[in-house]
Design a binder for these strands. Structure first.
Lengths: 241, 241
DNA sequence: CCGACTATACTGTATATACAACCTTATACA
DNA sequence: TGTATAAGGTTGTATATACAGTATAGTCGG
């Protein structure tokens, strides 16, 4: 039931970072201080700090101390990350409001994207996600009502559309396209950005058991967001030419 | 000078995985076996195996053993693709010319990106890649001369910098950042694009055995390029939240 | 022949201890 | 005043030891 001691120490430190009590640059307790306050051995404190460093939350300087690292405003390209959790992980406040919500008859282009033989109804949702009150993502999403019929019953106050869909439907395939765009006037107003600011447009389709679940366009203002990924290459794997 | 013991054990195991001697599913030596063969303590062997597990190379089962993990499916978006081959695959003609080539003393920001403790020299290369005569990529690359000392001896007429580096240095870690930018006047002229056309900027760092090999910024005009990936999600894999 | 028990191997966690390397600060000395 | 030295705090690594939990193989008894 109880988690290991090193995990408790990690969680304790993460709580302080998430809550904003320890901002980037703040010095966190030294190993010896953790030894005293938690009544643990230094090796256990060392493991907690070392793992948080490997995870990118802390940085350590021999002979000086351990400090909270600046969280990069970045998103993983590989995962279906939930923007609300990403923002929370940076210790910031996420909020979202629904700009439009409707059920439409799919035009041909959309029906093709959904790989539907005949025209069908689709759920359509436009949301704006904010980080500390600043718009960071414009979400324009279509959902297949046959795969996620209850999607339109959600109010998305406590759960984002991505989080709901991941929980409701097992996704087994993903497609991403990333491009740079100049936003339309409407998009610009929703995101509250200047006239010549480019945006990243992340176009995502997800499949479940051969059916397209959702088609989403996520627009990020260039100045407020970048996509990020870092990973170890498989040692045996082919790193293509 | 010599690397820590746990790092030596990690490297030893990675060598076997990289060479193909230990394929996915293969059982790796237990902690006690490593204790004997390396004459180290079990805690040191434990650290090596635990870190390799955290990095995704191994999986451990209490009471059973430690095994080489199946490499995760990665998207083409994140592979080290070579633009010359990409263009050739589309049946088009690739050409490139060098705009600038120099050896510089790394300013602080670059030294940080290269994770260098003290200032050092770096190779710097600016190239323009064209597809059927149209510029499609502006490559602005810095290279660590300690890792790839012969990089500056190449003329890159027949081989792109990416292809040379992949062949010359075993890359074991990659980092990508993608953002939308408005190009500078110089970049605009090199790419021969209009005044208000945004670009995709793909920032890439690669590591080899803990050292940063190269830092490259690849700029693609929005109208001529988009990044794409499609992949199956690993069945057991954690699709976060 | 089958089930319960036992021995064994392996991983997971935790502690106490030790030494090295590094940095900052205070102190002593010229 | 300026410099060298010493002290103390901090991280980094390594060891020996201990105990818990889990899975497997083998043994014994019914």
């Amino acid at each position: 039931m109880t988690s290991p001691l090193y995990a408790q120490v990690k969680e304790h430190i993460l709580e302080h970072i998430r809550s904003g009590a320890w901002t980037p640059g703040t010095r966190v307790p030294s190993e010896n201080e953790l030894v005293e306050s938690f009544s643990i051995s230094r090796m256990t404190a060392n493991r907690a700090l070392r793992e948080l460093t490997a995870d990118g939350f802390l940085s350590r300087v021999p002979g000086v101390g351990t400090f909270v690292k600046e969280p990069p405003a970045r998103s993983s390209l590989l995962e279906l990350r939930n923007i609300a959790e990403e923002i929370a992980a940076r210790g910031h406040k996420h909020a979202a409001y629904i700009d439009r919500r409707e059920t439409i008859e799919a035009p041909q282009a959309l029906a093709d994207e959904f790989e539907l033989r005949q025209a069908s109804k689709l759920f359509h949702l436009v949301m704006v996600h904010t980080e500390n009150g600043v718009p960071v993502q414009l979400e324009d999403r279509y959902v297949n009502p046959f795969v996620a019929p209850k999607f339109n019953d959600q109010d998305f106050a406590d759960i984002t559309p991505t989080a709901y869909l991941v929980a409701a439907v097992p996704v087994d395939e993903l497609e991403h396209t990333v491009e740079a765009i100049m936003p339309t006037v409407e998009q610009r107003e929703l995101l509250d950005i200047g006239e010549h600011e480019p945006c990243l447009a992340l176009h995502r389709r997800s499949w479940s058991k051969g059916h397209v679940v959702t088609v989403a366009t996520l627009i990020y203002p260039a100045s407020r967001y970048a996509l990020y990924s870092r990973y170890k290459t498989s040692p045996s794997g082919t790193l293509s030419q």
